[in-house]
Simulated assay, not measured.
Amino acid sequence: MAPPPELMDELVGEILIRLPPDEPEHLVRASLVCKPWLRLLTDPGFLRRYRAFHRTPPLLGLLHRLQVVQGDPEPRLVPTTAVPLLPYPDLRRSRALDCRHGRVLLHVLDRGGSFLVWDPVTGDKHRVPDVGIPWLIYTAAVLCAVSGCDHLDCHGGPFLVVFVATDDDDDELVKACVYSSETGAWSTPVCLDNGYESYAQHMQRALNLTRRIYNTPYVQPRRVALVGDEIYFTLRWGNAIVKYDWGNNCLSMINPPSHNSYNIVLMLMEDTSLGFAYIEGSSLYLWSRKVNSEGAAEWVQCRVMELETMIPVANPDDKAFVVGFAESLGVIFMSTGVGLFTIKLNSGQVKKVDEPGVYFSILPYMGFYTPDCCTLSSPARPRSH
């Protein structure tokens, strides 16, 4: 019997391009079938088409942060697929702060307070010097700095690190600054103080609530929301939202749609507006900050989702908490006594991604893992800078 005819390269490419990016092991296995397939699956042109075809980088792994009183979680990147991400860097003491644009930002606590920007796919590591702010509590973000980048293949290239903190020395002011890998320097910190009317009002409300104790404007150690060239984060007491425009190096405040919910998430909505999510009772409330017909920004409630029959709980007293968001995937992370779950906002699909535990802010690592990544992460490649 004659062997079956070989598929044309163009047809093979059209088939392979449709393999799902959230199951990247299929592409890796396909690259092992034969040398022609390997050449095709590592060809830069095919890879560009593959990423453009699927557009949304999948979730590859998870890190997370806890509140200050809870200490630090075990330093590990939990994989959510079968791909072999590189192990967490061998650091004596470190704290994961952010995952974004193919990079992970770590605070190296035993080396003078420096930072490490790490790529779990290629293994590249870049040291960032100490920020020089005597922080009391803080959060930070790592961003691709390539102008016009679509962030579908952010491996290498210049980056920014945005740092926001409650200063431990300077009257406990909120400060922010940004580091550029191109200049190798931090910007001059900018302060949010009583010169801002909204900030002064927030501090007065905190004083009234706490009777002059524990009114420090703590920056919440949550993953920040990135909307355009602006970073959004929250302060303790009333979910006060602070906006940092790093391009103009200025801070401002925004009142939230809800002051009373403790576990909240700031996120990028599908229409690129700022979103705000929280759970009250058994319902998930989603708000979006829209510009009205008069040009003023206001909060609009855009959705309410009933969770009682959607998210598994351990017992009648168990509750669900929102603990994170994956912006490009339209996915919210929720924690219960049964485990850590994702829920897709467009379909309501629920998926368990980790075991039960204490979660406060999930740091989702997203990116395309293609067969060329196996070459990028080989031991022969230099990976520290």
Rank of each mutant, 00 (worst) to 15 (best):
M1N: 08
D9H: 04
D9Q: 12
L16A: 03
I17K: 02
D22K: 08
V28E: 11
R29P: 01
L32F: 12
L41P: 04
P44M: 08
P44N: 12
G45Q: 09
R48K: 15
R51C: 11
H54R: 15
T56N: 10
P57L: 07
L60D: 06
L60P: 01
V68C: 05
A82T: 11
P84I: 04
L85G: 00
S94G: 13
R95P: 10
C99Y: 03
L106K: 08
G112H: 11
V117F: 10
V117T: 13
T122M: 09
H126E: 11
V131P: 01
L136E: 14
I137P: 01
Y138Q: 04
G157M: 02
G157L: 05
P158V: 04
T166A: 11
D168L: 14
D168S: 15
D168A: 13
D170R: 07
D170C: 09
L173H: 14
A176M: 05
Y179Q: 13
S180Y: 13
S180M: 10
E182M: 15
T183H: 05
A185G: 02
C191Q: 14
N194F: 03
G195F: 06
Y196V: 10
E197V: 14
Y199T: 14
A206H: 05
L207W: 12
R222E: 15
V224S: 07
D229E: 15
F233M: 05
I241Y: 10
N248V: 10
C250E: 15
S252F: 07
P257M: 01
V265R: 02
M267Y: 13
L268R: 15
F276L: 00
Y278V: 00
G281T: 06
S282K: 00
S283H: 12
Y285F: 03
W287L: 00
S288E: 14
A296I: 06
Q301I: 01
T309P: 11
D317L: 02
D318Q: 04
D318E: 03
K319Q: 01
F325I: 00
S328L: 04
I332C: 08
F341S: 06
K344I: 03
S347C: 09
G348C: 13
E355I: 11
P356H: 05
Y359G: 01
P364G: 07
P364Q: 06
C374D: 13
L376N: 12
A380K: 13
R383S: 15
H385K: 11
